[in-house]
Amino acid sequence: MKLLLTLLLLPTLLLAYEVTEPTNNGFTIQADNFVTITTPQGKTTQITPFPFVTPNSNTAPISPILCDWNPTGRWVVIFVQTTRATLIYAYDLLNERLLSQYNDYSNHPFPSWYKDVYSSEQTPGKWKDNILQIINDVQLRNGNTRKMQELLTITGPSFNILPLEASDTPASNAPQKPMPRSLEW
């Protein structure tokens, strides 16, 4: 049975997923059944906690894995888009460690229309110091689409991703009001 499973998984294990900007300053990001980062000294760290494909799961990325390197070379943020959601990982290049994520939404509520979210695609915007702007393209269950800004903030060994306040314009095609709270980048 194990041999059979190995044979089944082998094609997947031999494949690599496309990575945009995989190298920077001696660091290299690779993606096969896991995403890993290798330091200039050859130390490899696993980024994704479990494999994309197993006999009972398929959470493989559906588009190229995005690497957003902080301009100062301090961090890299990795975006893995799956069918309905984006997995986001942050790595401290200076201390060579994977950062943990904790999101406290209590003071950062989602806009009311977000309760009807079906899928979300998050992509990187601009960096400002330790904060990365994220653009979240949201598809609602009725087929409409909306856009929302979020901020990824790195503090020490952890980071969070919190929504900025967004407008509650009812229709996706209607002009969207500017966000009441935003940052100058």
Binding site: T59, T82, R84, A85, N103, K115, V117, Y118, S120, V138
Partner: peptide
């Protein structure tokens, strides 16, 4: 059994 978007209170 499946994965979805980040917390929306649902």
């Amino acid at each position: 059994g499946d994965n979805g978007p980040t917390n929306s209170g649902r």
